[in-house]
C-alpha cells in the first residue's frame, strides 16, 4: 500500500509540475524531485496549497556541497609497500560528471494531511550559489536558510534577515564546504600578556585516521527472516 501511495503522489507531481521538474525518482520508498532553482518558490506555493498535496510543513532545509562526491582517498586495487599513506591519492577532488552542479539545496517537506514526505532538491550555479528564499511559503525556512548561508555560502534572494547563525561572530569562510579543512583556519585562546582572547592560525595538524574508501564488492546481504526494512 505504501508503495502505491508513493506512485500516486509521484504521478500527481509530474502531472502538476511537468515543465519545472528536471528529474524525479523513488528510492528506498522516498520520493525525490529535482526542480530548476528559479522555479522553487512557484513549485513550493503549489505544493503547499494543492488539495491533493498540501505539504504544509517544511521539516528541514539543508545545503549540500557535491565537490568531492564519489572521490575516495584510497585506491584499493593497487598494492603498495611503504606505510600507511602508501595508496592515498593526493589529487584535489573535482566535481563528478554525474552531478549537474556543485551546490544544491534540499527541502524535506511533510504533508500532514496525506501523511507523506517529499524531498525537493534544486542545484545551483557553481560560481555564485543563489536561490530564491522560501520564507514566504514556509516560515520555518527562516533559520534553516540562514544556516545554509552560514555553512555553505548559499545566498537566498529576498530573505528578510540573512545573517550568520551558527558560527562565531566575525567568522570568515563557509565551514561545511568540502574545500574547507576539517581542522579550520584559526583557533582561539586566552593570551596572558594581552589579557584577552586572541585568534591565531590553527596548530592542529591535518590527519586522516581512516581513509575514505569505496568498495563495490563487499555488501551487507542478510536481513532477518520475516522482518521488512522500514519503508
Amino acid at each position: 500500500m505504501k508503495g502505491q501511495k508513493v506512485e500516486n503522489i509521484a504521478a500527481i507531481i509530474s502531472e502538476r509540475f511537468g515543465d519545472a521538474i528536471i528529474s524525479q525518482a523513488v528510492d528506498r520508498g522516498e520520493l525525490t524531485v529535482v526542480v530548476r532553482a528559479k522555479d522553487v518558490v512557484a513549485v513550493g506555493v503549489r505544493l503547499r496549497d494543492d488539495e491533493q498535496l498540501l505539504f504544509s510543513q517544511l521539516s528541514d532545509l539543508s545545503g549540500i556541497d557535491y565537490l568531492s562526491y564519489g572521490h575516495a582517498d584510497w585506491q584499493t586495487h593497487s598494492a603498495t609497500d611503504s606505510g600507511f599513506s602508501r595508496g592515498v591519492r593526493r589529487t584535489e577532488p573535482t566535481l563528478s560528471k554525474d552531478i549537474p552542479a556543485r551546490f544544491a539545496v534540499v527541502y524535506q517537506l511533510l504533508s500532514m494531511r496525506h501523511n507523506f514526505r517529499l524531498r525537493l532538491k534544486a542545484f545551483l550555479d557553481d560560481d555564485a550559489p543563489r536561490i530564491d528564499s522560501v520564507v514566504d511559503v514556509w516560515p520555518s525556512a527562516d533559520w534553516y536558510e540562514r544556516e545554509a548561508f552560514d555553512l555553505f555560502g548559499i545566498l537566498f534572494n529576498s530573505h528578510p534577515d540573512l545573517r550568520r547563525i551558527l558560527t562565531d561572530y566575525g567568522f570568515i569562510g563557509h565551514p561545511f564546504r568540502k574545500d574547507f579543512p576539517l581542522e579550520g583556519h584559526v583557533e582561539v585562546r586566552y593570551d596572558l600578556d594581552k589579557n584577552r582572547v586572541i585568534y591565531q592560525p590553527v596548530s592542529i595538524e591535518k590527519r586522516v585516521l581512516v581513509p575514505k574508501v569505496t568498495r563495490e564488492d563487499v555488501r551487507v546481504v542478510k536481513t532477518v527472516e520475516g522482518a521488512e526494512p522500514d519503508a
Partner: peptide, 19 residues
Amino acid sequence: FGIYLVSDGANKPYRLKAR
C-alpha cells in the same frame, strides 16, 4: 528528530544533516 543522510558508496557519510 530527523537525519538526512547522503552516501556516495564509501565507508563514511557524504553529508549528514540533523534536523
